[in-house]
Design a protein around this nucleic acid. Structure first.
Lengths: 135, 135
DNA sequence: TGTATTATTGTATCTTTGTATGATTGTATA
DNA sequence: TATACAATCATACAAAGATACAATAATACA
C-alpha cells in the first residue's frame, strides 16, 4: 500500500491520508475486508505523528468507508451499494481535479498556463491511447 | 541564530526578518533541513507580534526558501539558483499533470470525461480567482 | 484448559505550532 | 483635516504532536 505525503503542499496531512486511502479503495488496490496498517505503522512509514493517522482513520470511519476497532485494527468496508460505489468514484475524481488545480496554483501557475499544459498532455493521451507517464 | 531588528529603521520588521534569514542561509549558518524557531519563539526574542514573524515566514515559503508546516514548524529548504528553481517548478508541474491523468485513467474515466470535469473546475477557478477547494 | 501477564491497537486530552480575520496604529497624500 | 493604505497587533482557530489510557490479542504457565 503506497501512500505519499507532500509536506510542502499546504493540504493537511490527515486530509492527504484520507484522500489517498479513498483513492486506493476506488481503484481496487484495497479490497473490502483488507486490513489497513496500524495507526502507528503507517505513521512511522510517513514520518508523522500517529494521532494524525488516527484522525484520518476516524473520519473515514465516520464516513462509513472503513471500520476502526479498538485493540484490533482497521478494515475496509463493503460499499453499501453499487450506486454508492459510483458516487465515491465521482467524488474521487473531483478531489483529484481539485488537488491538481490547487497544487498547480501553489506552484505559481496561472489558469491559462495550467490549461495549456493540460491540453498538451491530453493530446498525447488521445494519440497514444494511454496517459503520459513520468518520462 | 542571531537576528536583530532595528526599530528606528523604516524598513518593515517582516522585511528585516526575511532579509536576515536569507542572509543566514547564504552564509551557511542555516542549513537545509534545519528548523527555524517557531513564530512565537522568534517573535518573543525580537519583542514583536508573532503574526509579523508569520508574515515573513509565509513570504519566504512563497519564494520557495523555507517550508512552513502547520502544527509542525518551519524548515530550511535546499537552495536553488533561479534557473534551477524554474526547472524544478516545470518538472513538478509536469509530474503533477501526469499524476492527474494517470490516476483519472486508473479510476476508469475516459479522456472526454476528464476533460469535461477539468473544464468545469477550471471555469470555477477563473470566476472565483482561486482554485476550487474540497468544500 | 484457564488465567495472569504482556504486547498491540485504537482513544482521549492537552500542548505546541502555524493560519485566518479583523482592529489598531502610523504615515503619506489629496 | 480627511482619507487611504501598509504594517503591526489581538483574537480566535485549525493542524499536528506528546502523553497517558482503554480494549483486544497473544503468550506464558500452572
Amino acid at each position: 500500500m503506497n501512500i505519499e505525503i507532500n509536506f510542502q503542499s499546504h493540504v493537511p496531512i490527515y486530509s492527504q491520508v484520507k484522500d489517498q486511502i479513498r483513492h486506493l479503495i476506488n481503484t481496487g488496490e484495497l479490497q473490502p475486508g483488507d486490513q489497513l496498517p496500524t495507526v502507528r505503522q503507517l505513521a512511522a512509514d510517513l514520518r508523522v505523528n500517529f494521532n494524525t493517522v488516527a484522525r484520518a482513520y476516524r473520519q473515514l470511519d465516520d464516513d462509513g468507508i472503513i471500520s476502526t476497532q479498538h485493540g484490533r485494527g482497521t478494515f475496509i468496508l463493503e460499499p453499501h451499494s453499487q450506486k454508492e460505489a459510483e458516487q465515491l468514484r465521482q467524488l474521487d475524481m473531483q478531489r483529484l481535479t481539485h488537488y491538481y488545480l490547487t497544487e498547480a496554483h501553489r506552484l505559481g501557475f496561472s489558469p491559462e498556463e495550467v490549461r495549456a499544459l493540460f491540453e498538451e498532455k491530453f493530446k498525447q493521451w488521445m494519440e497514444d491511447g494511454e496517459p503520459p507517464s513520468e518520462k
